[in-house]
Write a protein that binds this DNA or RNA. Structure first.
Length: 123
DNA sequence: GGATTGACCTAAT
DNA sequence: AATTAGGCCAATC
């Protein structure tokens, strides 16, 4: 696992309940503004960890990663439980629930983030 | 070990 | 305004 992934996980874990974030926002916050895709990839493996991956959506507020959850509406259901209205994989009030890490977190706090070593992961 | 592919985003046509 | 191309890091083939 790279440090980049750990930073991504750290940020995602800091997303408050009832809030969502976009891949790009996280990527930009971490310094690599163009690695939004990598953030998504990081999330792919995050389902084994204590990472609320359901709070990460794409820039349009679309639940692009819902397929990777069990069932078809699990992600939507999780968000709805936190008070986020979702309709047809689309968050209704995105800007209302949007949480920008750069507004609440300090990048320097993530330079010494403790790497999280997943157990269900191959060596 | 090279090539392809992702839960994406931005910039240039 | 809509489509295409490029880039990022890691994993899979």
């Amino acid at each position: 696992m790279s440090d980049f992934f750990h930073r991504v996980y750290a940020v995602v874990r800091n997303i408050p309940e009832g809030k969502v974030c976009s891949y790009g926002a996280i990527a930009r916050f971490l310094g690599s503004g163009k690695s939004a895709r990598v953030v998504g990839y990081a999330m792919n493996a995050s389902h084994l960890l204590d990472v609320p991956a359901h709070r990460v959506v794409n820039r349009n507020g679309l639940l692009t990663g819902k397929h990777h959850f069990d069932g078809n509406t699990l992600m939507q259901d999780l968000l709805a439980e936190e008070g986020i209205e979702v309709s047809d994989n689309q968050i209704i009030d995105l800007q209302k629930h949007f949480w920008d890490p750069s507004d609440f977190l300090n990048p320097s706090d993530f330079e010494f983030v403790t790497p999280y070593i997943p157990q269900d992961r191959k060596t």
